[in-house]
Structures are given as C-alpha cells and as structure tokens.
C-alpha cells in the first residue's frame, strides 16, 4: 500500500484549465479503511432495516391470515373465540382507546401544569431537582405503577367513583346500571377494576413523559418576547398565555400525542388492574374493561396457531394506531415554531 504522491494529487489536469468555464470534476478516492468502514456502516443500516422489516412483515402476514378468515366482522365482532371462528377486536379496541383517552384527559392538565410550574413558577434553585424528578418518573417500570394501582389506588378511588356515579350518573358514560345510589346496602364492588381505574394508572405513567417534552419546549420560548409582554404591562399569566403557550403549542400537542402512543401500548399496568370482559363497555366507572395488549398477555399461552394469528392481527392493529399517533406527533413537533431548531 503505497501512498499516492501529493504532487500528483494536487495536479490539476490541463484540460480543465483550458476550458476554464466548465466546473472542475470532483471525485473521491477512498482509502481501504474508509471503504471497509462505509461497507460496515451500510451493513449495520441494512441489518437493522431488515430486522425491523422482518418483524413488521411477519406480523402483517400472520395477522392478514386471521383477518382474511374473519372478514369485515374482525372490526365489528366483540367476542374473542378464534377457534370457533367468532372473533373481532371491537370490544378490545374500544377498551384500549377508552383507557388511553381517560389517561390522556387526566394526564394532559397535570403535564401542562407541571411543565408550566417548572419552567415559569418554580424557584431557580429548585428547577434542576424538579426536572430530574419528572424525568425519573418517566423511567419508573410500569409494573411498579401497576402494583400501586392494584393495591393502593383501587381502594382510594372507590368512594370517588361512587360519588361521581351518584351525582353525575345522568351523564351516560358515568352511569353504572347495577348501582342504585338510594340503596344503603349497595356494594361499591361494581366500581372495582374499571376502565377509569386503568386510565388513572396509565395517566400517572404518561404524565411525566408528556411533561418533560412540554417543559423543554416552554423553556425555549424567546426571552425577548417574554420581556416584551411583561413590559407592555401583562401579568405573569398573561405573558404565559400570550407568549409561552402559543410558542410551545406544537410541543404541547406533540407531547400529548407521544403520551397517547405510550398509553395505547401499555400492557402490564392495565393487565394488573382490570378484569377483562369481551363486550363494549361504555360505562367507564363499571367493573370490566379490556385492551389489546392485555388480551395478548392473557391469551397467548394456550393459543392454537390460528388463535396466535388472530392475536397478531390484534397486535398489528395496535401497532398501526400507535405508529400513526407517533408520526402525527413527530410531524406536529417538527412543523411548529419551537421544533424548527431541533
């Protein structure tokens, strides 16, 4: 391996000097180590791409098998009896979306409030600590939240659920048909293991994820505009409402959607707190709900090959929904003013 002569390398060919208008032809000759490195890096990319495509394709092919045999009733059937041919994701999909929506409705105010507090109200000395705490919350394993929901929150939330149902039962989703508020012997057990409880547990997992994204975006709001608002006589809340929130709107929506993606796919915490039912359960305070991921955890063990395909079809639907939500979040964050720099 003899190194090329530098004079030869620097020599500009006469041809290009004569036709002085045409641009110089630039080409790169790589040394052997660079070639090896390029090949290795591209190989890494190809390998990762093929693993990921393999997972996706496998899911799609096996899932399509089940979807094809179920036909359109896959989306409308509530039961899950693949071996007798009657199965569909209507009930589990409804439960998944209901739990995720409850979670995000509860988590969004908490996340916005916490992010605003940390970036605007908290004393300067306390901020790094609070940022650390919120990030730490996002890293706590889901099984710990599941334990908390199963052994602590369930008992604490029963009277609240009962209270909501008693006084707001006229709103259809808060109605619990088997519960009669006038009956002094009515048992509160109709409120256990509900979608509401699962939603609250998932909200606790989702809120820190969303809060940490929102806090980062709020902190980037330009100082000049903040001072401008204050100098025009705005109060602190007026400044936050007219400068920080419009600036961080993309981050707020994107953070909430990323949280939603996390909430949709959550398995263990939901599995531990709900009692699975295979009907569409619009009464969110009542016992029994279901989600796609806990359906998989529940049924994979004794599944026949065809039932496994059906579970994969359900998983595929969940994956597609989560992917749409995540991509939507990514696009919103990128398009927004605050996301332009990143």
């Amino acid at each position: 391996m003899s190194g090329p002569n530098i004079l030869e390398a620097l020599d500009v060919s006469d041809g290009s000097r004569r036709q002085d208008d045409s641009p110089r032809q630039l080409s790169t000759v790589r040394g052997p180590s660079d070639t090896v490195f390029r090949v290795a890096a591209h190989g890494g990319g190809v390998l990762v791409l093929s693993i990921m495509t393999l997972v996706g394709l496998f899911l799609a092919v096996r899932g399509a098998e089940a979807i094809a045999s179920a036909g359109p009733s896959f989306l409308t059937e509530q039961d899950w009896e693949p071996n007798s041919g009657r199965f569909g994701i209507a009930a589990v999909l409804f439960g998944t979306v209901a739990i995720a929506l409850i979670a995000i409705v509860v988590a969004l105010p908490l996340a916005v409030g916490t992010a605003t507090y940390i970036s605007e109200y908290a004393p300067l000395g306390l901020r790094p600590l609070l940022v650390g705490i919120v990030d730490l919350m996002a890293a706590i394993p889901s099984v710990v939240y599941g334990l908390w929901g199963m052994f602590w929150l369930e008992g604490a939330i029963l009277p609240v659920a009962q209270w909501i149902s008693t006084y707001f039962g006229w709103i259809p989703i808060f109605n619990v048909p088997n519960f009669n508020p006038g009956d002094p012997l009515a048992t509160p057990t109709v409120f256990t293991a509900s979608a509401f409880l699962a939603g609250l547990v998932v909200a606790m997992m989702v809120a820190p994820v969303a809060a940490s994204i929102m806090r980062e975006v709020f902190a980037q709001a330009p100082i000049g505009e903040r001072e401008g608002a204050l100098a025009l006589g705005s109060t602190k809340w007026g400044m936050i409402r007219s400068v920080v929130y419009p600036f961080g709107m993309g981050g707020m929506i994107g953070g909430a959607m990323l949280g939603l993606g996390r909430a949709l796919g959550e398995t263990i915490a939901v599995y531990l707190v709900i009692s699975p039912v295979f009907v569409i359960q619009p009464h969110i305070l009542q016992t029994g709900s279901n989600s796609i991921s806990s359906l998989i955890a529940l049924r994979y063990g004794e599944a026949s090959p065809f039932e496994l395909s059906a579970l994969m079809a359900a998983g595929l639907v969940l994956f597609l929904i989560t992917m749409l939500v995540n991509f939507g979040a990514g696009i919103i964050i990128q398009r927004s003013r605050s996301g332009a720099a990143s």
Partner: peptide, 16 residues
C-alpha cells in the same frame, strides 16, 4: 422505519 418501530408495543415484541 426505525422511527416507526419505536411505536411497536412491547407485548408485540414478545409475541413476535
């Protein structure tokens, strides 16, 4: 593709 796969629910990894 990698960004899409971050959305893969963890239970589906196990199922695969």
């Amino acid at each position: 593709v990698v960004e899409a796969m971050t959305a893969l629910p963890s239970i589906v990894c196990g199922l695969f």
